[in-house]
Design a protein around this nucleic acid. Structure first.
Lengths: 221, 221
DNA sequence: TCTTGTATTTTGAGTAATCAAAATAGTATG
DNA sequence: CATACTATTTTGATTACTCAAAATACAAGA
């Protein structure tokens, strides 16, 4: 049985791997888990001894197949729980991340299966993040366009928000940028570092590039 | 913040207090928490230092008002979660106890409040155990009749099952003794140690006294 | 090449919770 | 009253996780 701590290390490694690819530097785990560097070294060694990840000295870690499978299970629990909290218990999508952070370690596979059934097998959570299926398969979401990179003057839909912080999520909601919402990029000003877009006819919005990069968009089906 | 371990010690003390009254002997905690006696002594001292309970040397413990309030909160979480798992996720009432055991420490007050609302403020869980309200008030269930002690030949209803083990619960279900079910005691044979009762017209059932003592009954409204 | 700076590792120590086994207190029995 | 039994406490260790601070490795710049 993996402890909550081990599950958190695995999940952090998986998320970093999905976002950046390749090896996961120790510093990324230090950041994600909010512990001092020495702690990560110690934990990583113990986890490597258990076969959950490979530790390349002074470089970082890579998940082993076993470690990745466990990490995907944790991610599945996290995202199904978030979906459940929003859809069923009507909680605000900006507040469910922290709740799911605690529940993901306490929900058994049995409960998870019933929840999945109850929600009718959702494929994305309220932030648009893909939910791994029961076998650990997950939709590939690499190289998707964001408001920073997408084509201008085409009707689009918000697919996903790449930031779980309540502050940013509340801001996104304010701007009408929840997953599923329509958007169109009107103009991009690289020098000024802003993107001007339209959420509803007549409703304009100017976003800084770092914020724009957190809004994943797709074709407006 | 009380750790899961501390919450479990508090809950065990509360349940023992409700079932037997008076001081809770160390041995009761040893039993309930499945640890060796020395561990209980150590934990109890630490918890007494935190003001959660009073430790009377060589006698046992008593909950302080603070400790009791925390324990009632844990019990509320446990029983609301059980109710939720059965009513909403359609899990079997015989399997939800262990699941709730894990979830009671991970569910936040915010989630609990939404759950309570969603379930329309239930007052008992699937086993008939009373659910403390948000202020920690709980229905008094002392001196209720059981199949071992109740009057014979009166139409009754099962109110509560005083055993959380999947085995006993499955057996009770088999006998048609879920909370809400009708029963009548036909005859009690103290010498033989059995109680004969009727669950449906023509459906008879003979129970040993220890089992009969676990079935709480009330008037058949 | 030498130096600097940053990431990582090592070392030493602390906390929470646990066990095994020996010591002790208290109760009950002959 | 002495003895035996049982419940509780003490003592000494262990595991998992953590921090602070010193040591080390490595990449890059002067």
């Amino acid at each position: 049985m993996a402890s909550s701590t081990v599950e958190n290390y695995l999940k952090a490694a998986l998320l970093h791997e999905q976002a950046h690819g390749g090896i996961v530097p120790m510093g990324a785990l230090v950041e994600a888990l909010a512990v001092v560097p020495g702690t990560v070294t110690t934990m990583v060694k113990a986890m490597a001894a258990q076969g959950l990840l490979a530790h390349e000295a002074r470089q970082g870690v890579r998940l082993t197949p076993v470690g990745r499978a466990l990490a995907l299970g944790v991610l599945r629990k996290h995202r199904l729980v978030e979906t459940f909290l929003v859809r069923t218990l009507k909680m605000d999508w900006s507040e469910v991340h922290d709740e799911a952070e605690a529940l993901e370690h306490a929900v058994s596979d049995r409960v998870l299966a019933r929840m999945d059934e109850f929600l009718d097998h959702p494929t994305t959570d309220p932030h648009g993040d893909p939910i791994p299926d029961a076998e650990g398969r997950i939709a590939d979401t690499a190289r998707q366009a964001t408001l920073e990179t997408c084509a201008a003057n085409k009707p689009l839909r918000v697919a996903r928000i790449l930031d779980q912080s309540p502050d940013f999520l509340a801001y996104a909601q304010d701007c009408g940028l929840k997953p599923g919402a329509r958007v169109k990029v009107l103009q991009r000003d690289a020098a000024g570092g802003v993107v001007r877009c339209e959420t509803k006819p007549g409703q304009e919005l100017t976003l800084g590039l770092p914020a724009a990069a957190k809004i994943v968009v797709g074709a407006a089906a």
